[in-house]
């Protein structure tokens, strides 16, 4: 049994980040990409490389909000045999050595619906999952899923977007826990670049409406972009750049895990030093 901080790992991590007066770095990787063994090494290495939170993609055959890099990552993982049970297995093994780094699953509803909301929530909690982002499950459809997650203490993390106006924001943030994920661009993952000057007021608005930390993602690839977002948000999420790194390493015959962890180290440093360099 792993020790879970009171209120959960996500809350504890954002409180610690606030005390350090810095933003968090969230690394998104696809579970089982490129195959389970390498994926496990990546997961184990991410906290030491600088990831404050880990978002773990649940591979799905038809990821309609994702751009080509993450689509291909999902197909690689599925081709290598990844399943929802395999995702929980990956998290369970990670928790044998790391009981503090929050893990948030991110995926589409159908694989979750397929196993059943209650069974999903129970298995997630047992494995040591802290939160869930269900990309194609807006608040209007989310109550049965939210009920099951509540029963097992798994946070349902909502997405707010550039199209979310104030009236909508009240609906989006209802029943949201842990943090709010602000999608910085209207588009699919990895397609457009986030612009910090546009993101800042949106983050403030979401933070005020939800009373929760705000992580920003969907358009951040480089250490410079991550640092810029880290100055205005509570966390910066990088995803497509990691799955691209895996694809590149595979085509060059290099070790994908080494490539991903090196990239994470650079991004982590940029996020950690963003506010001190901005202040100084």
């Amino acid at each position: 049994m792993t020790a879970t901080p009171a209120g959960g790992r996500i809350k504890a991590r954002f409180e610690a980040l606030a005390r350090e007066n810095r933003a968090g770095f969230v690394a998104y990787v696809m579970a089982g990409d490129p195959e389970p063994g390498t994926a496990m090494r990546i997961l184990h290495g991410l906290p030491a490389a600088g990831a404050d939170l880990i978002e773990l993609g649940i591979p799905f055959s038809d990821p309609m909000a994702d751009g080509p890099p993450i689509q291909r990552a999902a197909l690689r993982a599925l081709a290598a045999g990844m399943t929802l049970a395999g995702v929980f297995d990956l998290v369970g093994k990670f928790r044998e050595t790391d009981t503090v780094t929050p893990i948030v699953l991110m995926g589409y509803l159908n694989p979750i619906l397929s196993v059943g909301f209650e069974a999903f929530a129970a298995a997630a909690a047992t494995a040591g999952v802290d939160g869930l982002i269900a990309v194609d499950c807006p608040p209007e459809e989310a109550d049965p899923l939210a009920d099951a997650l509540d029963r097992h203490g798994v946070d349902l993390i909502r997405l707010a977007t550039p199209t979310t106006d104030d009236a909508r924001l009240a609906i989006v943030t209802r029943r949201t826990r842990g943090f709010v994920y602000y999608v910085s661009v209207a588009g699919v993952t990895g397609a457009k670049a986030a612009v910090a000057v546009d993101v800042a007021p949106a983050v403030a608005r979401v933070r005020a409406a939800s009373g929760l930390p705000v992580a920003v993602g969907f358009g951040i690839r480089t250490p410079e972009q991550a640092a810029a977002i880290a100055q205005v948000a509570d966390a910066a999420v990088v995803g497509s750049a990691f799955v691209d790194a895996i694809a590149d390493a595979m085509s060059e015959g290099a070790d994908p895990a080494a490539r991903v962890l090196a990239l994470a180290a650079g991004l982590g440093d940029a996020v950690r030093s963003a506010r001190s360099s901005a202040d100084g």
Binding site: M64, A65, L109, V135, D136, C137, P138, E140, E141, R158, L159, A160, T161, P162, T163, T164, D165, R168, V172, V183, A186, G187
Partner: peptide, 20 residues
């Protein structure tokens, strides 16, 4: 009013599309 035919239908789209 929720766009449902019994248990079927609904609006399972990413948040970006919901206002639309």
């Amino acid at each position: 009013s929720h766009g449902r035919f019994g248990d079927y239908g609904g609006r399972y789209v990413p948040e970006t599309l919901m206002p639309l």
